[in-house]
């Protein structure tokens, strides 16, 4: 699958929640798009990713 434009080989099914942690993000500080569609936060622990998926994770930092 593709994560933020980079190839990532998926060896076993993985939820978006696990991917977020694996990439070093905090779940309460991100927005996630899966194949061009926003993923509701309530589905992070439910949606299983496959190798044909394209995921974009955006992390937000403090200050404003």
């Amino acid at each position: 699958m593709k994560v933020n434009g980079e190839h990532l080989e998926l060896v076993s099914p993985m939820t978006i929640e696990v991917l977020i942690l694996k990439k070093g993000y905090r779940q309460d500080r991100v927005a996630v798009e899966l194949n061009g569609r926003i993923v509701p936060r309530s589905e992070y622990g439910v949606v299983l990713l496959s190798n044909s998926d394209s995921v974009e994770i955006v992390g937000f930092v403090g200050g404003g």
Partner: peptide, 29 residues
Amino acid sequence: FDVPSEKAMFINTMLEECPGIKIVAGSGM
């Protein structure tokens, strides 16, 4: 906003509930 979790809350809520409205966000300044 300035708190990252509030930024994420706002952006996710807008993208989930108000599709088609463009969001311009700030992160890191």
